[in-house]
């Protein structure tokens, strides 16, 4: 099994939104950043993977097994942090520990306890007394403490201050040190992804726009900044999208080196994921 997660042509239709042929593959031992606007389909895709929504078409395989047929077996090894979905807030971390003992075969109370200590979370306080950041840390601790092989995380660091985020990202990287574990990480905090993600999958309006290695996007792709006159000289085949701002043209190209060799334009910058997203979504062809 090369890929820990494989999605092929996932389709799901709602009244005013639809997933269309979403296809992606996450290899073992890798981190995939899942990016897109709010409402682009990240959460819907994640829900399909977990069978939280069920009436979808397409094939989803986890650990090489069909996610519908082997749902129970697969879920023993998946750790999940979802947006705004967790234990009832009148419960305490101790309650969570005792509950999970009876849910996962591999639940590790000691590991959970260690995380609580590391995150300074009091085991006997109700979740509703925790701040947003503390809740997220608790959710992450819960997801990790049954030794999963695949982490599916929907905005796991939202609401965390930079120091806490750095802590959590370190924990994710430790998780990946075992080369048979993977992470699917949906996040708006693209700076984190720019560092630790191996792959980036970008979804827009229910369709996958691109799915590439992060290195290719950051090393090869680039953003050309030029005047209108210079832009007019560029062959349409040599760029992906462009955007006209008040003072300049911004042009997304897939190979900085080739572009530089062909055109004599001074500014070809390294692109950030945020800029990539904005250009892909708001740019014209």
């Amino acid at each position: 099994m090369e890929n820990i997660l494989e999605i092929k042509n996932l389709c799901k239709t709602y009244d005013n939104f639809a997933l269309k042929n979403v296809t992606l593959s996450l290899p073992k031992g890798m981190i995939m950043g899942f990016i897109g606007e709010n409402g682009a389909g990240k959460t819907t895709t994640i829900k399909a993977i977990l069978n939280i929504i069920q009436s979808y078409r397409g094939e989803i395989k986890i650990f090489g097994l069909d996610n519908r047929k082997y749902d129970k077996k697969i879920k023993e090894d998946i750790g999940v942090v979802l947006d705004d979905m967790f234990f009832p807030e009148i419960l305490t971390p101790n309650d969570i520990d005792n509950t999970m003992k009876g849910i996962y075969k591999n639940w590790d109370s000691k590991m959970f306890d260690d995380y609580l200590k590391e995150f300074s979370l009091l085991p006997n306080k109700q979740i509703k007394t925790f701040s947003k950041g503390m809740r997220k840390k608790l959710e992450i601790a819960t997801a990790l403490s049954h030794h999963p092989k695949l982490l599916i995380l929907d905005e796991p660091t939202s609401g965390l201050d930079p120091v806490a985020r750095a802590e959590i990202i370190q924990i994710f990287q430790s998780f990946i040190e075992k080369d048979d574990c993977s992470i699917l990480l949906s996040s708006h905090i693209t700076t984190d992804l720019e560092h630790i993600a191996d792959y980036i999958t970008f979804i827009n309006r229910g369709e996958i726009v691109l799915s590439k290695t992060k290195d290719e996007l950051l090393d090869k792709y680039g953003i050309v900044k030029c005047t209108e006159a210079e832009f007019k000289k560029i062959n349409k085949k040599d760029y992906i999208k462009y955007r006209k701002t008040k003072y300049e043209y911004e042009v997304l190209v897939s190979n900085k080196k080739d572009f530089k060799a062909k055109y004599d334009i001074a500014i070809i910058d390294k692109i950030t994921l945020d800029e990539l997203m904005v250009l892909m979504i708001k740019g014209e062809e």
């Binding site: 981190i31 990202i169 990287q173 630790i196 191996d198 792959y199 290695t213 992060k214």
Partner: peptide, 17 residues
């Protein structure tokens, strides 16, 4: 490869490369 990626705060594919 993996330890180096973690310590350098970069991705595994980068250090592998």
């Amino acid at each position: 490869i993996r330890t180096l990626a973690k310590d350098l705060y970069c991705s595994v594919i980068t250090t592998k490369n």
